[in-house]
Write a protein that binds this DNA or RNA. Sequence first.
DNA 1: CAAATATAGTTGCAAATGTAACTAATTTGC
DNA 2: GCAAATTAGTTACATTTGCAACTATATTTG
Lengths: 155, 155
Amino acid sequence: MRKVTATPALNLRSFLPFRLSVLSNAVSRRIADLYDREFGLTIWQWRVMAVSADSPGISATEIGQRTQMDKVAVSRAVAGLLERSLLERKASTQDGRRALLFLSPAGREIYEAIVPLALAEEARLLDVLSTREAADLARLMEKLAHAASPDQALW
Amino acid sequence: MRKVTATPALNLRSFLPFRLSVLSNAVSRRIADLYDREFGLTIWQWRVMAVSADSPGISATEIGQRTQMDKVAVSRAVAGLLERSLLERKASTQDGRRALLFLSPAGREIYEAIVPLALAEEARLLDVLSTREAADLARLMEKLAHAASPDQALW
DNA sequence: CAAATATAGTTGCAAATGTAACTAATTTGC
DNA sequence: GCAAATTAGTTACATTTGCAACTATATTTG
C-alpha cells in the first residue's frame, strides 16, 4: 500500500490573516487619503490628535499605549504636529521627563472638521451591515483581538 | 437661546478603521514572525510562494492581482526567492514580456513545511469562535470588503 | 545620599516601501 | 506593416519605518 502524504490546502483567498490584512489596507487607504488630501495629516498624526482631543494633557507614552503606536512613531507624529502648531506641549511639573500634550486651538479646529468626515466614512462602510451585524462584527473582532494578543488589550 | 454646536464624539477605540488596523497588525505580526524566524521569508515572499504553489506558471502581474501587492513588491519578493532558488522562472513562449513562475523543489519543500504551521496559527485564532461565528465573520468581512472597494474584488 | 537602574522621549542609521521613470516586448490603429 | 500606444517587469530615487543608541530625568537600593 502506497503512503499518501497529502499537503493540506492553503488557499490564500480564504486565509484569515491575509483577508484581514487586505481588508484593513483597503479601509485604511480610503481614510488615509481623506486625512492627507484634506488636511495634510498622516494616519499617525490623526491618531495622536484623536487621543489628545479625548484626553488633554496625555503624554507621548500613554498615546503609544492607546493607539498601538511605538514611541518613535508617536514622537515623529507629535513633532510634525508641533511643527504645524496643531499641538502644544508643556513639561510636567511632577516629572520632568514627561511632556503633556494638548491640541492647540488650530488643532482643535482641524480635529472638529475631521471628526464628521471620519464618522461618515465609517458609516459608509457600516451601512452595508445591519445594526445586528455591526454589533456581531465588533464582538467577533474583540474575540480575535484577545486570541491574537492574549496578554494585552488591543484597544 | 444659545446655539450649542456639539462636536460629535469619535472614540478611537471603537472606530472601525482603527480596530481593523490594530487587529490586522496583531495577527500579521504573529505570522510574519513565524515565516521569518523559521524560514527567513517576508510576508510578501510567502504570499508569492502560496499563489505559485496554487497556480504553477503564474506571472508576476497575476500574482499582484491575487495578493493585492503592487508590481514592485512582487518583483522584489520574486527576486529574493529566485536568489535563494526557491522559485524558478521561464519566459513565456507566447509573450516574451511575461515570466512564468514555479516553485522549485526546494521551494515546494519549504512551502509544505509552512502550510501546516500557518493553518495551525489560523486555527488557533479561529478556535475562539464557533463554526457559526467564523462563517459570520467571513460573511461580514466580505460585505465590508465590497463596501471599502466596490469596483474590485479584494480576494 | 551616591551609584545603579529604569523610564520618557529623541536622534541616527539601516532596511523597507512607494512613486516614477525606464527597458523590452506586444498590441492597436491607420 | 509601421508608428503609437499598452503592458510586463525592473531600476533608481525619495520617503517612511523600525531598531538601537543616546540624553535627560526619576526611582530604587544598599
